Simulated scan of single mutants.
Amino acid sequence: MKLYAVADLHLGHPANREAIHAIEARPNDWLILAGDVGETERHLDLAIDALQDKFRQLVWVPGNHELWAVASHGTPLKGEARYARFVQRCRERGVLTPEDDYPVIAVDGTLVRIVPMFLLYDYSFRPAHVALESAVAWAREAGLRCADESLLLATPHASRGDWCAARVAATGARLDGLDAAIPNILVNHWPLREELARLPRIPRFSIWCGTTRTQDWHTRFNARAVVSGHLHMPSSRVIDGVAFEEVSFGYPKQWRGRREPDAALRRIRV
């Protein structure tokens, strides 16, 4: 069995909704959807409708876009309630989430554990001279604004940073309790290490890209590979002997004329 991953399908864009139908069937393999499938439950359903029958199993983690307080109909859910609704929808459709048991499977003949995570960010990917309370203003000095500031609400937590701290603590405790003999494939929408969140054209966007709390997780939790998205900068890097795979598909202007939709799927080797 093989393991594939893709992030940032952004199915709010019609071209992307059409593109996912060009992804080839791999009925014996698993596919990770590493966040930012879209902004609504309908977008999630579109992805599941298009991809579930093509793969043995789908695994989903949320990105910031899923957590935006936007409504398909009625009053939009916020914060933890919104995340819980997406988890519920995945479970209704047979898709694994960060709230489910971590499956142990044989990938390329090697037993590994798939660990979908939801960890958020806390503005700690910033220079040492920039205070936490000044981080957003520091980014704005460079003309950067992130829609999360108005749309990604942390209810009932006091802030996204507090929500991030709670998610990191709970996930870390859960990982500490696992059998360390089985290596892990760690999956999170946001990169786990600060040096991976360097965007050459918009470097100050890093504050919305992760948390330094996870800087050593690839070694602390015996990872064979770490899968993420969010940056829209597909790449493969090896750090401390661990493969870090950024698997973004991206907006139409980022993939059209550059690669075919099926080529956006990254095979995760163990």
Rank of each mutant, 00 (worst) to 15 (best):
M1N: 10
M1A: 10
L3D: 04
D8A: 14
L9M: 12
L11P: 08
L11Q: 12
H13Q: 13
H13E: 10
N16C: 15
E18M: 15
I20Q: 01
I20S: 03
D29C: 07
D29S: 06
W30F: 09
I32G: 10
V37G: 05
G38C: 11
R42S: 14
H43W: 04
L44V: 10
A47E: 04
L58T: 01
V59G: 05
G63N: 08
N64S: 13
H65L: 05
L67Q: 05
W68Q: 06
V70H: 05
A71M: 09
A71G: 13
T75D: 10
G79C: 12
E80V: 11
E80N: 03
F86R: 00
F86Q: 01
V87H: 06
L96R: 01
T97G: 06
D101R: 06
V104E: 11
V104I: 08
I105Y: 01
V107C: 12
G109F: 10
L111P: 00
I114Y: 08
V115N: 02
P116Q: 15
F118V: 00
S124C: 13
P127A: 13
H129D: 12
H129M: 14
V130T: 09
A131K: 11
L132C: 12
E133D: 11
E133F: 15
A135G: 06
R140T: 00
A147M: 14
D148Y: 14
E149A: 00
S150R: 04
S150W: 04
L152P: 01
L152G: 02
H157K: 09
H157N: 14
A158M: 06
A158N: 06
S159Y: 00
W163N: 04
W163P: 02
A165T: 01
A166W: 04
A170F: 02
R174K: 13
D176S: 14
D176A: 15
I185E: 09
I185P: 03
I185T: 03
N188V: 09
L192A: 08
L192H: 04
E195P: 07
A197W: 03
L199D: 08
L199W: 07
P203N: 15
F205V: 01
F205N: 00
C209G: 03
T211P: 07
T212L: 15
T212A: 14
R213W: 09
R213T: 08
W217V: 03
H218I: 03
T219V: 11
F221Q: 02
R224P: 02
R224N: 08
A225I: 05
V226S: 02
G229C: 11
H230Y: 01
L231S: 05
L231V: 03
L231R: 06
H232P: 10
H232T: 13
P234H: 11
R237C: 11
I239F: 04
D240P: 03
V242N: 05
A243K: 09
G250C: 08
Y251G: 07
K253C: 08
K253H: 10
Q254H: 02
R256Y: 04
G257C: 11
R259K: 14
L265V: 03
R266H: 11
R266N: 14
I268G: 05
